[in-house]
Amino acid sequence: MTATDIAPATTGERASPASPVRRRRRLRAVGPAVLFLVVAAAAWQLMAVLLDSVLVPGVGDVGGELVEIVLDGSFAEHLGITVLRVALGFALAFVVAVAVGIAMGRNEFAQRFFEPAVLLGLTIPGLVWALLCVIWFGIGLANPVIAVALASAPALVLTIYQGVRSVDPDLLEMAHVYRFSGTTRLRRLWLPALAPSLFAGARLGLSLGWKVIVLVEVFGMSSGVGYQLNNAFAAQNVAAVLAWTLLFAVVMAVLEYGVLQGLERRVGRWRKVVSV
């Protein structure tokens, strides 16, 4: 008997115990979310049956509208427009927030100078930003981009500022003693230390940006998901309103679970996981 005859059996013996373990882990990770969706759908269907009103469509009616929106191409078309607006606005907010957040964390004068603006930005509702940007910038691309940036930037600045303040002073002193270059400090010290704050701020900023972009598109745009929601509302088509809302939520879930969490795990691989 040769080594090649033994190898497949050995590989199979090693792979078989691991496969059920992976399946159980996936079930534990996905199971609660799936259960929540099933319970929510069942509760909605029960409410629709009990109320028996056109204002509360059943799960089947909402599902039919959802399929129609996806198949006729309107969802992909308007979603692409909305995603582009959010991406540009969030990118603008992120660049500004990183600079301002680090400055606030490293300099007391900068902290006191920008603090009122951050607090004011956190208290202003997204509806106000949407209305003001529609008045100021009309229906051009600047309107949704600046509205998203104004709504997202304060939360991003705050999380980055807190991340800078939480960096270990001993690490900063070590970098100073060993005369690390600015590039080395950025790659080896600041980015790893600020990664949790950056991802937390990205989640919060994106959620605020999604909410504001819908308001902007409802009030002052002729395209996008918010525009379609407004059309469905004007026609009193509650099933279409719910269908667009669900599709919007699916996109957010894909962004969170498929993009942000994957990047966060990849960036944080160097961290030691301590099990008690």
Rank of each mutant, 00 (worst) to 15 (best):
Q45M: 06
T159L: 15
P196V: 06
V59R: 05
I102T: 09
F94L: 11
V276A: 14
V38N: 10
V70C: 12
A97F: 03
V251I: 11
G126W: 00
L71P: 11
L172M: 13
V218W: 00
V274D: 11
I6H: 07
V251T: 09
L66G: 08
F36M: 12
Q162M: 09
V254Y: 03
T2L: 09
S223L: 04
Q228D: 12
L92T: 10
A18T: 13
F137Q: 02
F199H: 05
I146Q: 01
V276F: 06
E13G: 13
F180K: 01
A193K: 04
L171Y: 04
F199I: 15
A76E: 12
R14K: 13
I139S: 13
T2W: 06
A193R: 09
H176E: 14
D52R: 10
G182I: 01
A151E: 00
G80A: 12
T82Q: 07
G262V: 14
A253I: 13
L35K: 07
A43D: 02
G182Q: 08
G58P: 04
R269Q: 14
A142F: 11
A93D: 07
P144Q: 10
Q228T: 06
V164W: 06
A235M: 13
S16L: 15
M104N: 05
P144K: 06
A40N: 01
V238M: 13
M1R: 09
F233A: 14
A103V: 06
G31F: 09
V98T: 10
L84T: 05
P192A: 07
V70D: 04
F75R: 01
F137E: 03
A239S: 11
P32S: 08
L141F: 06
A48R: 01
N230P: 00
D72Y: 07
P144W: 03
T184A: 15
V59Y: 01
L127I: 15
G58L: 01
E217G: 11
V259T: 02
G268T: 11
V251R: 03
L131I: 14
L206V: 07
V70F: 08
M174I: 10
P57S: 04
A234R: 11
A243F: 05
S74W: 11
A9W: 05
I6L: 15
L263P: 07
S181R: 03
L158R: 07
S152R: 00
L172W: 03
F233L: 05
W190M: 15
A33M: 13
D5L: 15
L208W: 00
R269I: 08
Q261Y: 09
F109P: 04
I160H: 02
K272M: 14
F75C: 02
V251Q: 03
V218L: 13
W136Q: 01
A9R: 14
L206N: 02
A235S: 13
E13N: 12
R185K: 15
V241T: 12
D168K: 00
A175P: 02
S197C: 03
